[in-house]
Each structure stands twice: as structure tokens, then as C-alpha cells.
């Protein structure tokens, strides 16, 4: 029972707010996302990562709603596993099991597949990425870039309709970044890519620029990215790093 990840996906955010410890992180975001390749840019601290987790349903909103194809994923975790996968920044804080086989099979078993079937699907995923020989590898023997790929494969194996990427290229060298970008570009489903570096979003359709928890600008990728880069360069000329948040 494999679904087609190429099914279109509709993300709906309605007056989405998130606050923690009295600090307001997202302030009333209302937006619909249905492009195949969407980017979210913003400075560090703009709320991008929080937004990613709210869309994935990992964290419930303080007020407002986030839904994918009408499903509230913070309530329906089983549907969440079917609809969305999320790739985090640091593989060392993401990979749970000691072997590649276990790590990739884990999500498949959680989806309800019996052990033999999950193993089959794991091998199929590894073959898809040309890494069949990794099946019995121990995670600790892999390089950082290889670990990033294992995390990606573990998600792709579950064929979610949408993969959210939370700054997944942080700290990677140029060749590894290029290889992972290529692997992502081949994904049939939707991608939602969170980043502070506009270069990561080459070829993307739609971009949302988040500033201090609100949507500053949104639209076609080239236009929004140019505006974003100009604004960021201007701020770079000031000394706002001196300000301490109260």
C-alpha cells in the first residue's frame, strides 16, 4: 500500500499564533501554501523553525490553526505520519538507532507495516538512492554528510506528501550540499524548505519571508528573494547585534 507522494498538498494557516514563556514567536499568520517547491526565509529568530514544527503538527499552536489537506496534524498524529515528514538540522539529534537498517525501518514499522515488508521497503529506498551497500552499516561509522542522507532516506521511505526541511544544510561542505540538493530535487512530493540562505532555494516556486513572527512578504521566489537579500544586506550595515532582547 504505497500512496503517491505526488498528490498535490494544501497547507492552510489561519491566524496562527505561538507564544512560549510569555514570548510571542508567531503573530497571527494567515496564508495558504500549495506550490510544489516553497521556501521560507528569514533571520535567525524570525520564527521559521517554530512555523515548521507547527505545520508538521509536532507542536500545537497557541491560537489559530495549521492544517494540511484539512487535517489538523497536531491532533491526528497518525495522519501526520502519512502526510508530512520533517528533516531537522542536526543528524546527531535526529538519528535514533545504531544501524541504517533499523533507522530507516523505524518509521515504516510505525506506519503499520509488518517487519518483512518494512525491510523490503528499506532496501528499496536504499536502492533508489544507490546506497544498497549501506543496509548493514553502523551509523557511527558514517560521515556527517552520510548521516544527513540517512535522515533523508528514513523520511523518503515513508513517502509523505510533504517534506519540511528545517535548515538541513547547516555546516555541510559544498559537494555534500550539492549531492543532497540533487537528492531532494528528485522527490515527487512537495517540499517546504526553511533557510536563511537564499541560495538554497534556486528553482523554487513560492517563497515566504518571515520577519519577527509575521509574514513580511510572499510571492514568486525571485522577487521575494531579491527583496529579502536587499533588506538583509542593509541590516548587515547596522549594529543591531548589540541589542539584548528584554
Amino acid at each position: 500500500m504505497t500512496r503517491n507522494p505526488a498528490d498535490p498538498v494544501q497547507i492552510a494557516l489561519t491566524d496562527l499564533c505561538f507564544a512560549v514563556d510569555g514570548k510571542q514567536i508567531l503573530r497571527g499568520i494567515t496564508h495558504d501554501i500549495s506550490a510544489k517547491r516553497t521556501g521560507i526565509v528569514g533571520r535567525n529568530g524570525s520564527g521559521k523553525s517554530t512555523l515548521a514544527r507547527l505545520i508538521a503538527g509536532l507542536v500545537p499552536p497557541t491560537t489559530g490553526t495549521a492544517s494540511i489537506d484539512g487535517h489538523d496534524l497536531s491532533q491526528d498524529r497518525k495522519q501526520a505520519l502519512i502526510d508530512v515528514g520533517i528533516l531537522f538540522q542536526n543528524p546527531d539529534q535526529q538519528i535514533i538507532f545504531p544501524t541504517v537498517r533499523e533507522e530507516i525501518s523505524f518509521g515504516l514499522r510505525q506506519l503499520g507495516h509488518p517487519k518483512a515488508r518494512a525491510d523490503e521497503m528499506t532496501q528499496a529506498t536504499l536502492e533508489e538512492f544507490g546506497k544498497s551497500h549501506w543496509i548493514d552499516a553502523h551509523v557511527h561509522s558514517l560521515s556527517q554528510g552520510q548521516k544527513h542522507l540517512v535522515c533523508l532516506m528514513a523520511i523518503v521511505a515513508m513517502t509523505p506528501k510533504l517534506i519540511i526541511l528545517d535548515e538541513p544544510f547547516t555546516g555541510l561542505d559544498i559537494p555534500t550540499k550539492a549531492q543532497l540538493t540533487r537528492a531532494l530535487a528528485q522527490y515527487h512530493g512537495n517540499l517546504l524548505h526553511i533557510t536563511h540562505d537564499p541560495a538554497d532555494l534556486a528553482g523554487y516556486d513560492h517563497v515566504i519571508w518571515l520577519e519577527a513572527g509575521q509574514v513580511a512578504q510572499t510571492g514568486d521566489a525571485p522577487a521575494v528573494l531579491n527583496a529579502y537579500v536587499d533588506a538583509m544586506t542593509a541590516i548587515g550595515g547596522t549594529d543591531d547585534i548589540a541589542d539584548i532582547a528584554s
Partner: peptide, 13 residues
């Protein structure tokens, strides 16, 4: 906490 989140991203348990 990040590890538990990564777990919950792939499991309803």
C-alpha cells in the same frame, strides 16, 4: 527534546 521530537515526527507513540 530534539531527539524526542525527531521520534514523534515518525511515530504516533
Amino acid at each position: 527534546g530534539n531527539l524526542t521530537q525527531a521520534w514523534r515526527a515518525r511515530s504516533p507513540r
